[in-house]
Design a binder for these strands. Structure first.
Length: 462
RNA sequence: GGCGGAGUAGCCAAGUGGUAAGGCAGAGGUUUGCAAAACCUCCAUUCGUGGGUUCGAUUCCCACCUCCGCCUCCA
């Protein structure tokens, strides 16, 4: 497949550098609360990315970390009166539940920062040894960005300005005397009283690793010095990913990531999503409003990953209808396929355009459109041809990670409801419209919908 | 101030130097005693604004307007 690369700023064909499996790393969540739909736009698109590769026959190795120690997790655990590990374990479990509901495949490896302290310390030691890092008097260790020529390459920021710390006129609180340069970032944070019990020992004293370091250390551990692709939300381009590149290339050599895949943030109701505006939705918030996770997934993949996506509650309602329409189309196709078997599972038939869209810079909205036009095109197919089209449709759905709603199982109809409905049908058959309509209203009031047919009727829960 | 992205129908959203996918909503029709459901059909002479290049621009160029992101730990 072809995908835009943040570093080179061009769409490039992806090829596994080891020739067999495609190995990639995604920056995972900081587990201090429930993730919101903005977070999930990133994780869902990364999931579609992986599914498209796998559908295309490429094996993958998907590594995604859990940030389980930082200011927010420490503060959160203290506020909750829990040990850090217990606190983060709870939110990690919640994250997994949400991901599963959204149809995201679990990564093959999901390392946590706390479990990789020695690896992080080792990386700092290597950096200090090569003079890319230095210890400050308070026991913190910083990376010297002036020592890395390519600093700023990924974010395309002016390196000289970054080194001098002149990128922003408004940086007022430049009172960090510990650092050689204002722009140097922390690798090891010296222990502070507010860290509580959350500190580890190191050659520089007690403290904890800086945020950027965990990804570099875990990538080295599980993917080595060079790997295929690194992904995250756009906001991570600078400084997080820029810093990872600096740390990893200076400590290990190697090329680090061959390709950078960043997902643009979403907007809510055309504006910024924020807690204060009350539009920062979690899956739980949306469930309370009656919107299931598949509707959320549909909306999240409804815009191209490099464009802002305007998330609205109306679009969720639209997603439900769209999913129902797809399910209906699939059932109709299955009915026309009858019991015929698929002989030729190669190619995507009427859904070829949708498949190509996914492989062309992960164009999920175009692929969704192709699902509908494909179904229309397939509506004339019968027997084996229909079965093959259905197989292609289902493969595409799996690539998108969509699960279609099942038809409502025939609900248990209470005897009194059944009796009322029979009575209504009798009245209707006798052309007693007044009685028939009254009984229909009656049934509606009890939560049952009557669907009349020529030879009889069906009852459905409203 | 620097770098980057976006502005396409009521809403969401693809796309292209050659005359605008798809979804939702809406409208009409078939069916129905009337509804519902189902099925069918319709729904942007136009792509933020103003110029320019071109046989032709929504697509390329310039200017302007509006919105958004990043510019030191936010997906």
């Amino acid at each position: 497949m072809r995908l835009f690369d943040t570093l080179s700023r061009e769409v490039r064909e992806l090829r596994p550098i080891d020739g067999s499996s495609y190995r990639f790393y995604c920056c995972g969540p900081t587990v201090y609360g429930p993730a919101h739909i903005g977070n999930f736009r990133t994780f869902v698109l990364q999931d579609v990315f992986r599914r498209v590769l796998e559908t295309g026959g490429t094996r993958t190795l998907h590594v995604r970390n859990i940030t389980d120690v930082d200011d927010k997790t420490i503060r959160g655990s203290q506020a909750a009166g829990q040990p850090l590990a217990e606190f983060t374990a709870g939110w990690k479990a919640k994250f997994h539940t949400d991901c599963e509901a959204l149809g995201c495949l679990p990564p093959h490896i999901e390392p946590g920062a706390v479990d990789h302290i020695p690896q992080q310390v080792a990386m700092i030691e290597a950096l200090v040894e090569k003079d890319h890092a230095y210890a400050a008097p308070d026991g913190s260790v910083y990376f010297r960005i002036a020592s890395f020529d390519r600093y700023g390459e990924l974010s395309h920021l002016d390196r000289r300005e970054l080194v001098l710390g002149k990128t922003q006129e408004t940086r007022a609180n430049a009172d960090e005397y510990e650092k050689d340069s204002i722009a140097d970032f922390v690798l090891w944070k010296a222990r502070r009283p507010e860290d509580g019990d959350n500190f580890w020992s190191s050659p520089w004293g007690e403290g904890r690793p800086g945020w950027h370091l965990e990804c570099s250390a875990m990538i080295r551990e599980y993917l080595g010095e060079s790997f295929d692709l690194h992904s995250g939300g756009v906001d991570l381009v600078f400084p997080h990913h820029e810093n990872e590149i600096a740390q990893s290339r200076c400590a290990c050599g190697g090329n680090f990531a061959a390709h950078w895949f960043h997902i643009t943030h979403l907007l809510v109701d055309g504006g910024k999503m924020s807690k204060s505006l009350g539009n920062l939705y979690t899956l739980g918030d949306l469930a309370e409003r009656g919107h299931g996770p598949m509707e959320v997934r549909y909306v999240l993949i409804g815009a191209h990953y490099r464009k802002p996506l305007n998330f609205t509650l109306d679009s969720l309602a639209g997603a439900r209808e769209a999913l129902a329409k797809l399910a209906k189309g699939a059932r109709a196709l299955a009915a026309r396929a009858g019991g015929d078997h698929v002989l030729n599972a190669v190619g995507f038939g009427p859904f070829q355009a949708a498949w190509e869209a996914l492989n062309d810079d992960l164009n999920t909205p175009a692929a969704l459109g192709g699902l509908f036009t494909g179904l229309r095109e397939a509506s004339s197919l019968e027997g084996q041809a229909a079965a093959e089209a259905l197989a292609a449709f289902n493969r595409l759905l799996r690539a998108l990670g969509l699960e279609l709603p099942e038809p409502e199982p025939d609900a248990e109809i209470p005897a009194d409801i059944q009796a009322l409905a029979d009575e209504r049908w009798a009245a209707r058959s006798a052309k007693d419209w007044a009685k028939s309509d009254a009984l229909r209203d009656d049934l509606a009031a009890r939560g049952w919908l009557v669907k009349d047919g020529r030879e009889g009727y069906q009852l459905e829960p409203a």
